[in-house]
């Protein structure tokens, strides 16, 4: 299936079965009609990420190909949420300086409410599962590129909470000022313990000269 960009007319071949937002790789404008108002949201800042659109990898024996990303800039940190085609499904790959997380189910509503949450506290993910909050930060800006599956908070200022447990489960919870919350459920990896293919390389780092 393909679409022509309504702004530049370039052909775009769809990657995901559940695409929600498509940013034209040629003119960096929105092909879909999600209605994100911030023009700068499609001007992705360069952050030295070696993962790029087209990067491939394998998770649990199933290959994936990266199609797009949402980048969350926080005061003291950032999160890249890469969206990838994973067989006939979609997988989110969370990337920070400290870890990589694979999130297979899509965003889902998070039913619990937080009070006075801070890093280090246990949060209740379900009646049986508790996770330790590793990071909580307000998001200052959000950028989008490529093709991504549904993200529930376009144009909204969100806070992001990451929490994990001993079973290496990790959850990313997004909460907006109105108290609506959605989460991604996944598995946490060491940042230097995963490998991708077709990554971006940087000549200036290839020698110590």
């Amino acid at each position: 299936m393909h679409t022509n960009c309504p702004h530049c007319g370039k052909r775009y071949d769809h990657q995901l079965n559940d695409a929600w937002l498509i940013v034209c790789p040629s003119c960096h404008q929105e092909i879909t009609s999600v209605g994100i108002k911030d023009d700068k949201a499609f001007h992705m800042p360069d952050d030295w990420s070696v993962i790029q659109i087209g990067t491939t990898g394998t998770y649990k024996g199933q290959s994936f190909i990266v199609c797009g990303r949402i980048r969350f800039q926080m005061k003291y940190d950032f999160r890249n949420l890469w969206c990838a085609r994973y067989g006939d499904k979609t997988i989110w790959i969370g990337q920070s300086l400290e870890s990589v997380g694979y999130f297979t189910p899509p965003f889902a509503p998070y039913p619990y409410q937080f009070e006075n949450i801070r890093a280090g506290l246990l949060i209740e993910f379900s009646d049986k599962i508790k996770l330790k909050c590793e990071m909580i930060e307000s998001c200052l800006s959000v950028h989008y590129e490529g093709e991504i599956a549904e993200y529930p908070f376009p144009d909204a200022r969100v806070a992001i909470i990451q929490a994990s447990n001993t079973a290496r489960n990790t959850v990313l919870i997004f909460t907006n000022p109105g108290g609506r919350q959605h989460f991604l459920w996944g598995e946490l990896m060491l940042v230097y313990g995963v490998s991708f293919e077709k990554v971006r390389t940087f000549a200036e780092w290839e020698s110590v000269k």
Binding site: S99, K132, A163, S164, N165, T166, L190, V191
Partner: peptide, 12 residues
Amino acid sequence: LKPYAKHPWSYG
């Protein structure tokens, strides 16, 4: 030193 996301205190 390098980041280590598996510190037992990080999640337990």
